[in-house]
Design a protein around this nucleic acid. Structure first.
Length: 369
RNA sequence: GGAGGGAUUCCCGAGUUGGCCAAAGGGGGCAGACUGUAAAUCUGCUGGCACUGCCUUCGAAGGUUCGAAUCCUUCUCCCUCCA
């Protein structure tokens, strides 16, 4: 089966939607946050822990798994689900972001992207066709089209050419994509230029994908600009298809994204900053290494029900970080993911109960907006 | 009792042909950053102050010198080896 998204309710005071995404590996309530497991693992988490904290769909990455351990080994396990032992839905990113983030290591051509492995420097070529083949072997429920995440700032000329190229690549991805039980999402680009966003969206809508990624945002631009481009872009996409804002984000950005009609999000932020000692809390962020928590007996967040908050004090978790103990990173990751997953559940409920406005205002206020 | 080595800024530890030394480097400490993961990573600060300069500091006291962590004298403590 292919994925199918159903809108259950539209918020009256905003562009937000409450929906349901059905996939070959189960149903996902939206808006949803998807934890990122780049290398077929959400860093430091077991599938059981992810399930317990409420995660329902994960992200993984084509570029990384292609280089190591190779798509064939994953396929030999029956795809990512068997390989990483996650029974729920999975979405794979195409490697388009690595084209952006690996910078000097790549050369972009019409055919595709020639790049050097960040692991051993070896040369490789990604084309829309090869990426579809790899994503097919990885076997996620949703595969993202191979695109180019345009840097910021970018000139109009560059953004225009890159966006047009990503559009052509999207068409080639669609033509090459053949795996059963997998759906291909197109990705809207256009940089920060509204006419390019409109053009990109129109082309992709014409190709009729089952869902749309909004890429190229949160790449260094100021938030007001990102929100402006986002709220210009979402209305350009079909009402009946899911929208996925790629690479976002922080708690405030998730709220802002939902208000602007986004249904799916992913971001490395919660897991990365967790490992680096920063926690999301109902009172804003908390840097657990700070000396003020040395003897703090309270949980990370007194309003949180995650495993870490049910059992441990700030003083203990701080101690783990200071001592370099791996459990600190694990507990912090559990907490941050739980926070975002719960945040999304709260937003879904608020949409259902017609009080998204107040809920969003309260959350944005907690994060200083 | 004899011979030798050493004491440096919170810790370890460079520096000892005198100036470029408030003093390398590491640790520790204190902060900050992180948004489709080249990240359990990276960055900054870490004697005091009235801070483009001044003051105090390299075991203690005294001395040589324009100038001393660096040279000389005495003292204190520590370590190694020989009796």
């Amino acid at each position: 089966m292919k994925v199918k998204w159903t809108c259950l309710k539209k918020d009256e005071g905003s562009m937000a939607r409450r929906g349901r995404l059905e996939t070959p590996h189960g149903t996902v309530e939206t808006p949803v946050f998807m934890p990122v497991g780049t290398q077929a693992t959400v860093k430091a988490m077991t599938p059981a822990e992810l399930e317990e904290m409420g995660a329902r769909i994960l992200l993984s990455n084509t570029y990384h798994l292609y280089l190591r351990p190779g798509a064939d080994l994953v396929a030999a396990h029956g795809g990512l689900h068997g390989f990483m032992q996650w029974q729920g839905p999975i979405l794979t990113d195409s490697g388009g972001f690595q084209v952006f983030s690996l910078g000097e290591l790549q050369k972009i051509r019409e055919e595709g992207v020639e790049f050097r492995s960040h692991i051993d420097g070896s040369k490789h070529l990604f084309t829309p066709e090869s990426v579809m083949d790899i994503e097919g072997k990885l076997g996620a429920d949703i595969a993202m089209a191979f695109d180019e995440c345009i840097p910021y700032p970018a000139t109009y000329e560059y953004a225009k050419a890159a966006t047009a190229r990503s559009g052509r690549w999207a068409a080639r991805c669609k033509a090459a994509h053949c795996r059963e039980n997998q759906s291909l999402f197109g990705i809207v680009q256009g940089g920060m230029y509204k006419d390019l966003r409109a053009q990109s969206a129109a082309e992709l809508v014409e190709m009729d994908f089952p869902g749309y990624g909004i890429g190229g945002l949160s790449v260094g631009e100021e938030k007001p600009l990102m929100y402006e481009v986002l709220e210009h872009t979402t209305p350009l996409l079909p009402q009946e298809k899911p929208r996925y804002l790629m690479g976002v984000g922080s708690p405030d950005c998730l709220v802002a994204g939902v208000l602007r009609g986004v249904d799916m999000f992913d971001c490395v932020l919660p897991t990365r900053i967790a490992r680096n000692g920063t926690l999301f809390t109902s009172q804003g962020k908390l840097v657990i290494r700070n000396s003020q928590y040395k003897e703090d007996m309270r949980p990370l967040d007194e309003q949180c029900s995650c495993y870490a908050c049910r059992h441990f004090s700030r003083a203990y978790i701080r101690h783990l970080f200071i001592a370099g103990e791996i459990l600190g990173a694990r507990l912090a990751t559990i907490h941050n993911l739980h926070y975002l997953v719960s945040l999304m559940a709260e937003l879904r409920l608020a949409i259902e109960e017609n009080r998204l406005g107040q809920t969003a205002a309260r959350l944005l206020n907690a994060w200083g907006y």
